[in-house]
Computed example of a mutant assay.
Amino acid sequence: MPSILGKGSRAGRTGAGVVIAVLAEDQWPASEDLARWRRLTPSASWVHIGVRRADLGRVGGLVEEMSEERGVRPGQLVLFGAGEIGRAALELVAQGSLECAGILAIDVPCTPLPFHHLETEAVIRLVVHQESEEEPGLIVQLKHADVDERIIRLNQAGSTTPQATGSAAEAFLLELVATVGHRPRLRASK
């Protein structure tokens, strides 16, 4: 797990408006980045959804359980995950099995999705590390799909530090909160 998703802290409040669901290991992630992002998004509610790597197949069910318990509509939900957990959520969102307004995934495996037709209206934002100049299959697939995607590719030229990853993720997170918070059709869905 990247350093921006460390361990500790307590879950954020929920309510009307944008809800950011952090998908991470069992404990609430604590990091300077997350603490700063929470301060930068006072209108958003933050909630942790504990996902063990062994339970990646349960990501969709866990998100749906949280949404039902807290009365969160898909149009107000932003998912945030890293690595394999972020990839599992991205796949569910892209195939239309998990509804949300947007997803931010960082450091996800960049192999192509196991399906070709993407079925989502969610805003997709990725921060990935790239070993070569060739675009990974996932990026090519997303760029050719009819989805609202933006991808920051960090390469070997010194931009692969946790600070670079955190900066890129922060920019996308702030954009997602602003976008989702100002989209009446998304906020009113379901």
Rank of each mutant, 00 (worst) to 15 (best):
residue 64 E to D: 13
residue 42 P to L: 00
residue 67 S to T: 09
residue 81 G to H: 05
residue 78 V to L: 04
residue 74 P to T: 04
residue 46 W to K: 10
residue 89 A to W: 02
residue 46 W to Y: 09
residue 39 R to E: 13
residue 86 G to M: 03
residue 73 R to S: 08
residue 74 P to Q: 00
residue 71 G to P: 11
residue 56 L to Q: 00
residue 40 L to A: 12
residue 47 V to F: 12
residue 41 T to R: 07
residue 71 G to T: 08
residue 61 G to E: 10
residue 55 D to S: 14
residue 44 A to C: 03
residue 32 E to G: 15
residue 31 S to E: 00
residue 70 R to D: 13
residue 88 A to V: 06
residue 47 V to N: 08
residue 45 S to N: 13
residue 58 R to W: 11
residue 36 R to D: 06
residue 40 L to F: 09
residue 30 A to H: 15
residue 57 G to L: 09
residue 46 W to R: 10
residue 35 A to V: 14
residue 40 L to C: 10
residue 65 E to F: 12
residue 37 W to N: 06
residue 33 D to V: 14
residue 75 G to Y: 05
residue 73 R to P: 09
residue 34 L to R: 00
residue 42 P to Y: 05
residue 62 L to M: 15
residue 49 I to F: 04
residue 79 L to F: 03
residue 59 V to R: 01
residue 54 A to W: 12
residue 69 E to L: 15
residue 82 A to E: 10
residue 51 V to A: 00
residue 50 G to I: 06
residue 55 D to H: 15
residue 62 L to R: 15
residue 45 S to K: 11
residue 70 R to A: 14
residue 77 L to S: 00
residue 83 G to H: 01
residue 82 A to G: 11
residue 85 I to T: 06
residue 43 S to Y: 13
residue 77 L to Q: 05
residue 50 G to D: 08
residue 88 A to N: 03
residue 78 V to M: 04
residue 81 G to C: 01
residue 46 W to E: 03
residue 58 R to C: 10
residue 87 R to W: 05
residue 45 S to E: 11
residue 42 P to V: 02
residue 29 P to M: 03
residue 30 A to G: 14
residue 41 T to E: 06
residue 74 P to V: 04
residue 79 L to T: 00
residue 68 E to G: 12
residue 37 W to E: 01
residue 65 E to S: 14
residue 53 R to P: 12
residue 32 E to R: 15
residue 74 P to R: 05
residue 61 G to P: 07
residue 62 L to K: 15
residue 82 A to C: 10
residue 54 A to F: 11
residue 63 V to Q: 04
residue 81 G to N: 03
residue 50 G to L: 06
residue 74 P to W: 04
residue 53 R to T: 15
residue 45 S to I: 10
residue 34 L to C: 05
residue 49 I to T: 07
residue 29 P to N: 06
residue 50 G to Q: 07
residue 67 S to H: 10
residue 73 R to Q: 07
residue 74 P to G: 02
residue 52 R to T: 12
residue 70 R to H: 15
residue 57 G to H: 13
residue 66 M to K: 15
residue 46 W to N: 06
residue 37 W to I: 01
residue 32 E to V: 11
residue 68 E to V: 13
residue 40 L to Y: 11
residue 39 R to C: 11
residue 62 L to I: 10
residue 29 P to H: 06
residue 85 I to K: 03
residue 38 R to L: 05
residue 44 A to M: 06
residue 55 D to P: 08
residue 44 A to E: 04
residue 36 R to L: 07
residue 45 S to W: 14
residue 35 A to E: 14
residue 56 L to S: 01
residue 31 S to M: 00
residue 66 M to E: 13
residue 71 G to H: 09
residue 47 V to K: 13
residue 52 R to E: 12
residue 59 V to S: 02
residue 53 R to C: 09
residue 72 V to W: 07
residue 59 V to Q: 00
residue 67 S to E: 10
residue 48 H to R: 09
residue 36 R to G: 06
residue 47 V to C: 11
residue 58 R to H: 12
residue 48 H to M: 08
residue 69 E to R: 15
residue 59 V to W: 05
residue 79 L to D: 02
residue 32 E to Y: 11
residue 84 E to I: 12
residue 68 E to C: 11
residue 63 V to G: 02
residue 54 A to H: 12
residue 56 L to M: 01
residue 32 E to K: 14
residue 83 G to A: 04
residue 69 E to M: 14
residue 33 D to P: 14
residue 77 L to G: 02
residue 70 R to K: 15
residue 39 R to P: 11
residue 54 A to N: 11
residue 89 A to R: 04
residue 85 I to R: 05
residue 29 P to R: 04
residue 63 V to A: 02
residue 49 I to W: 05
